[in-house]
Amino acid sequence: MEKQANTTLDTAKDVVTFDVVLSENFVMMELSGIVDVLRIANRVLSFEKFKWKFCSEDGGRVTSSIGAYVETEVIAENPRPDHVVFIGSADPFYMSLDVEKFAARYRHGGALVILLAEAASRYISSNQDNAILHTTHWENRALLEEEQGIYGIRSSLAVTQDQVITSAGMGATADIALALLGRYVSSAKLMIVSKIILHDRIRAFDTLQPEILATLNTDARILNKAVKIMQENIEEPVTMTDLAKSIGRTPRWLERNFKSLTGCSPGRYYRELRLSHAHNLLLNTNMSIQEVALACGYQSGFSVAYRQSFGQTPHQVRRAQIDKM
């Protein structure tokens, strides 16, 4: 049974506990996004309202993707924190811990389970029938679609389903931490913490992962529709004429307004979007270079376009990946 959030005043001395579960090669930004928010909240409250400990499957030293490390405890057999945050590996090839197994262990103890980015992806992979009820970082979502054929994953920053929050992680981690904080501190104190970390607004969970422009401007909303169409048609690119027609505008309007608001033409943006997807697939999947090219809408000319964008050929990037293994 899920523990109910304590909504008492800032002066309540009830301690709120967190286990932070780390995988080898974890993302430091996500660790900081959770722990620093809690640390600053304690400072603002002038007492230790929030406590946390670092855990891993085997305990001991766990190293981040930037080389910094954290000493951890072994995950308890019957853990009882109020919350547990799983931070996955920055390397999708790394055989990380069984997120489904350990999330179930924490849920049994009543904890609210928060899964960030790669950890959320592993959970979704183990719960494919319920993929539409969860989210993960857009790069991870693309990999799940390409490698496992899992579609329908949400594009929002975070989704709450029963005792589990799946999320995009990365920069959105601070939004999630602040949202959790809001269950235990007043709005005034929450605003102070937010301002200290220079977070000008706390994004709601249903906020979509960033598109080209976060604005209420009508033209920008129309252009975001164009970007969404681009994102949904990576493998079979649409022409700029068809794209303009899809958003109810002329090709000239699309070209002029897109460049005015983004600094580049829609054609160039579309090309870079496809090549960025190709780069992600080259680094994080075992797909052949030909398969990557086709998945990104290139029947020919892929190597030349890729080299112009990234300064290396796809073969050079793939060889470098092999040499790391």
Rank of each mutant, 00 (worst) to 15 (best):
R307Q: 14
Q290Y: 09
A293M: 02
E139G: 02
T262Q: 12
L190I: 05
T285C: 11
Q209R: 05
M29D: 03
A174G: 00
G311I: 10
D98F: 08
T8L: 13
I87S: 06
Y151N: 00
T17N: 10
G110L: 13
Y69T: 14
M95K: 11
A220I: 11
G297L: 07
N286Y: 07
A119L: 09
L112C: 06
Q290C: 08
T160M: 10
A111H: 06
D200S: 05
I176L: 06
K228R: 14
M230S: 05
G169D: 05
W52I: 05
T160A: 08
E71S: 06
I192C: 00
S167A: 07
D82A: 08
S194E: 05
M325N: 09
I202Q: 08
L261R: 15
E236L: 11
D98C: 10
A177H: 08
M230F: 13
V70E: 09
L273Q: 13
Y123I: 00
L9Y: 00
I124E: 01
A172C: 04
T285A: 14
L243K: 07
H108R: 10
T63Q: 06
V74Y: 01
S56P: 14
A111Y: 04
C264E: 14
T218V: 11
G109Y: 12
D206M: 02
E291T: 13
Q312I: 12
Q231T: 07
P266K: 15
A12G: 00
S155L: 04
T63I: 13
W253G: 10
D175E: 03
F54V: 07
I66C: 14
V99Q: 06
H83R: 09
I34V: 15
T313I: 03
E146K: 02
G182I: 05
S32E: 07
T250H: 11
A226V: 09
I165Q: 01
I322A: 10
E71I: 12
T160K: 13
D58I: 07
Y106W: 01
D162Y: 00
M287G: 04
A111L: 05
H137K: 07
E255A: 15
